[in-house]
Amino acid sequence: MPMRALPTTRSLVLEEEGGWLTVWLDRPETRNALSGEMVDELKAVAAALRDDSPVRGVTFRGKGGTFCSGGDLKGFRAIVEEGRTLEDVAAFSRSAGELFHAVNELPQVTVMLVEGAAMAGGLGLVCAGDFVAVTADARFALTETMLGIPPAQIAPLVVQRIGLAAARRIMLTAARFDGVEAHRIGLADAVAQDAAGLAAIEGEVRRNVMQCAPGAVAVTKELALAAAHLPREEMLDRAAAGFARCLTGEEGREGVAAFLEKRKPRWAL
């Protein structure tokens, strides 16, 4: 199917190959800080991926050996010095929050590859991924409270990723930790020694994802995210409807037939 055109970007490098998109954060001079421009571009990429895209998976990583240093503090200072209203500042925060949730809710499988550092909002972006691989020496911290601000928009995603107790500890103390500790607390799914190790882990994830039906993956993600907040009866209904759509749709018919006929389904690469 034709893919909705990816946006033209200045702070991101987009590489699509074989049904997989790699999104490189590309502001190495700022350690890939999340500027307003980068947030807008990431949201535009997410919008393009959400609408009938043939992309099966998305990897996020950072140029220059660093994932993301968090929000652009020079931009934060400019907001204060310009005397923006509370409403303006809240709208700025909400825009960033919309980005994190847009990534979290992408229908594709998302992979976060972290080397160098993932700080503050960068750590929040990591928590929006489905699969996270980090180098052992990668550095992490939620430093917002040290700056007199809360990790407001990323807090729900941090809790979602590692649970309330661990999230409270790292958010309220601004604790710094490495990739090994990130794996221990559930932030990371896998640890590598270097970038080559990250590439090997990602390759295995890609191979596995390419065996799965993209529509079924999208419905599975939708149900998993809904499970935390939907009442029991509504969850049962949504799960039943999703199952019915998939089983009676093209993918379900093909998947069952392929299994019974002992062949690969059409989507398996």
Results as ranks from 00 to 15, higher is better:
R245G: 01
L157I: 03
G18L: 06
A175G: 06
T8V: 13
G65R: 06
A155K: 00
V58P: 12
C127L: 04
G83F: 00
V126S: 08
G186S: 03
A196E: 11
V217P: 12
V111P: 07
L49F: 04
S11V: 04
A133E: 05
A216D: 14
A5N: 10
Q193R: 11
H101M: 14
T8H: 12
I149G: 01
A138G: 01
M119K: 02
E29C: 01
G19C: 13
L113P: 09
E98I: 00
R266Q: 09
V219C: 04
T9H: 10
G186N: 05
E37Q: 04
A152F: 15
T145H: 13
A240Y: 15
S35R: 04
T110M: 11
R169H: 12
D72C: 06
V58N: 08
G242I: 01
C212Y: 10
V134M: 09
A218H: 03
E17I: 07
A174R: 01
R238N: 07
D237E: 13
A239T: 13
S69N: 05
C246T: 05
D130S: 06
R31N: 10
A199T: 14
D72P: 02
C127Q: 03
V23I: 07
L147Q: 12
V159M: 00
V80D: 04
F76R: 00
